[in-house]
């Protein structure tokens, strides 16, 4: 268990990594990455029961699946800073011959990644499959997954959500990043989805809400509550309310930075707001 200040320091460093990674190649997705920085840091520093090193089968440890693969910058930064691969490799993000592809992949054997994601809507099904294999293997560890709120517009999610409840897959905690934004605008303007909580509950899931999704203490408390609700015959959904672009003032509360990199001046501004804590890559 790390203390909250350590996690905050790590989050600040992760934000710097995200900004520097996307700036260098003038591409990538900073908005959603920044919004989920606290969640990823909490997950890998505190929540997941992980083994040392990386093994694809992951027997005897909790597993995490990222469904909205475009927020790869935060995933790569946190994986590197959790010891899966050298931090300096972050400098190869999106470059030719890199293991850090635009969207996460197993193709180049990057430790920490168990499935390719990027084409949206598949990760819930994949995570449920892994959860069922855990049960077949009598492995009591949990499956965690993360999905965008806009991503729920992909119909396959609802096949998976229906399946999970119908088959009592109760060893999964699927978190939805409720930032209310997608590429073309707010989720309410692109395709209003009504009550996501109501939909999950209607489909037979237990729902836990974390209203301060950029507050580490709130995340740890909410995820502990979610964990306490596993093993009771119902899948568990966490609705994590975040702010897209969190921690970089000009990127916050807008879809504008979904898939756009900062220029030199904007990078400098963002980095000033997030002073180096653990050392840049």
């Amino acid at each position: 268990m790390s203390n909250t200040q350590q996690l905050k320091d790590l989050t600040t460093q992760v934000r710097r990594d995200i900004l520097r990674m996307v700036h260098k190649v003038n591409s990538g997705h900073p908005g959603g990455s920044l919004g989920c920085a606290e969640f990823f840091v909490s997950l890998y520093s505190d929540i997941l029961d992980r083994k040392e090193g990386f093994d694809m089968d992951g027997i005897g440890e909790d597993l995490f699946f990222l469904s909205n693969g475009h927020i790869s910058p935060v995933y790569y930064s946190v994986l590197a800073r959790s010891g899966y691969f050298p931090v300096k490799e972050l400098s190869t993000f999106r470059l030719i011959n890199s293991r850090l592809q635009g969207h996460p992949t197993t193709h180049d054997n990057l430790p920490g990644i168990r499935i390719a994601s990027g084409s949206l809507g598949q990760g819930m099904s994949v995570a449920l499959g892994a959860a069922q294999t855990k049960k077949l293997n009598n492995d009591s560890h949990l499956i965690y997954s993360l999905h965008g709120d806009g991503e729920l517009q992909e119909g396959q999610n609802w096949e998976a959500i229906m399946y999970a409840a119908g088959n009592k897959v109760d060893n999964i905690i699927s978190t939805i990043d409720l930032n209310g934004q997608q590429i073309d605008g707010s989720t309410d303007t692109v395709l209003p989805m009504g009550s996501i909580k109501g939909k999950f509950e209607a489909f037979g899931w237990t729902v836990v809400e974390i209203n301060e999704g950029n507050d580490i203490d709130a995340i740890l408390k909410g995820m502990a509550e979610a964990k306490s609700k596993t093993g009771k015959g119902k899948p568990v959904c966490v609705l994590l309310k975040t702010v897209m672009g969190n921690g970089v003032d000009f990127m916050m509360h807008t879809h504008a930075w979904h898939g756009k990199a900062p220029n030199d001046e904007q990078l400098a501004n963002g980095l000033v707001q997030n002073p180096e804590t653990l050392g840049d890559y």
Binding site: G58, I115, S125, L128, G129, Q132
Partner: peptide, 8 residues
């Protein structure tokens, strides 16, 4: 996709 996950 379930099948893909089950291989893990």
């Amino acid at each position: 996709s379930l099948a893909a996950g089950m291989t893990i």
